[in-house]
């Protein structure tokens, strides 16, 4: 009987989480040290260069329709002269229990065997549900055919987002998305694929630090670290304080707070109480009186 209940619970997990895997091949994750991050924005431009995200222009930016997959959020607390400014880079945290995956009626977004939350552009019909369900607001939509739209019209100029010869810069490993399609951070899946291919050719697992997404690579302060959480010896597991937590999958199965598991008291996950189980681990910034007041705007 108990066995049956267990089996049913297991099945139930699959029903609740479309992307449920007992164990991932690799479990890609990121650690962002907020004490290192200065908010300089290099990652934002690096991402734009790597992932063919179009420039949308002033007017569209004003509507919140810029397509950056990673953004720096900046929070200011207090009034002059006691001003506290805090930065946090926000990108898709590839949630383990991703709300977006449940939302999509056509499986355009699903969890892959590497623990990534992937978006299939070809399958997307544009119901916007994933973006609405996303608590992190990291999903971006292709509102127009950007290589046809003149985004300088308001300014009297003329330029599409990939105005020739700027189009020659486009990364051939990444598609240029069609109008009407949702997109988001992929952890530079093209680099992951390339590294996997290489590793397979050489008949070895991927080495720690072998893959660096564009944002991680460019970060001048080395605030971002990327790696495989399946490997407790990896740098990110060390940084996040998850190396001694025994089976990291406990983290997935138990749904406990990271502060209960991690040996690093600085580790936290953004909006953890929503139980989306994001796989980006932020390291708390060290500052005096940094916590925000619960007061209202």
């Amino acid at each position: 009987m108990a066995g049956f209940i267990e089996l049913m619970l297991e099945r139930f997990k699959v029903y609740r989480e479309p992307g449920y895997y007992k164990r991932f091949d690799y479990w890609w994750a990121m650690v962002i040290d907020l004490d290192r991050c200065t908010g300089c924005g290099a990652c934002v431009t690096a991402c734009q260069a790597e992932n063919n995200t179009p420039v949308v222009g002033e007017e569209e930016c004003g509507k919140g329709r810029n397509l950056s997959w990673i953004r720096i959020e900046r929070y200011i607390e207090g009034e002059y002269p006691n001003v506290k400014v805090k930065f946090i880079p926000v990108l898709c945290p590839q949630c383990d229990r991703a709300p977006c995956e449940v939302a999509c009626p056509v499986y355009a977004t699903y969890h892959n065997q590497d623990g990534l939350n992937v978006q299939v552009y070809n399958r997307c019909v544009g119901t916007f549900t994933c973006a609405t369900y996303c608590p992190y607001d990291v999903r971006r939509f292709n509102w127009f055919t950007y290589n046809k739209k003149n985004f300088l019209k308001g300014n009297g100029g003329s330029s599409t987002s990939f105005e020739p010869p700027l189009d020659q810069q486009l990364n051939p490993d990444v598609s240029v998305r069609e109008m009407g399609v949702m997109e988001k951070c992929t952890f530079c899946i093209q680099r992951i694929r390339a590294a996997k291919d290489r590793a397979k050719d050489e008949n070895r697992p991927i080495r720690d630090g072998e893959i660096q997404p564009a944002c991680v690579q460019t970060c001048p302060t080395k605030a971002l670290t990327f790696g495989d959480l399946n490997n407790p010896k990896s740098r990110i597991a060390q940084l996040a304080g998850l190396s001694t937590a025994g089976d990291l999958h406990y983290l997935r199965e138990s749904g406990s707070k990271i502060s209960d598991i991690s040996s690093n008291p600085r580790t936290y996950r953004l909006l953890e109480d929503l139980n989306a189980a994001p796989t980006i681990f932020y390291l708390k910034r060290v500052m005096k009186n940094g916590s925000s007041t619960a007061g209202h705007e």
């Binding site: 907020l34 959020e73 900046r74 929070y75 200011i76 607390e77 805090k86 930065f87 946090i88 008291p265 600085r266 936290y268 953004l270 909006l271 932020y282 708390k284 910034r285 060290v286 500052m287 005096k288 009186n289 940094g290 916590s291 925000s292 007041t293 619960a294 007061g295 209202h296 705007e297």
Partner: peptide
């Protein structure tokens, strides 16, 4: 640009 107590950028003291 206010956190409203949502603990978005968490901190610890020196």
């Amino acid at each position: 640009a206010k956190e409203l107590g949502r603990n978005i950028v968490q901190t610890i003291t020196p």
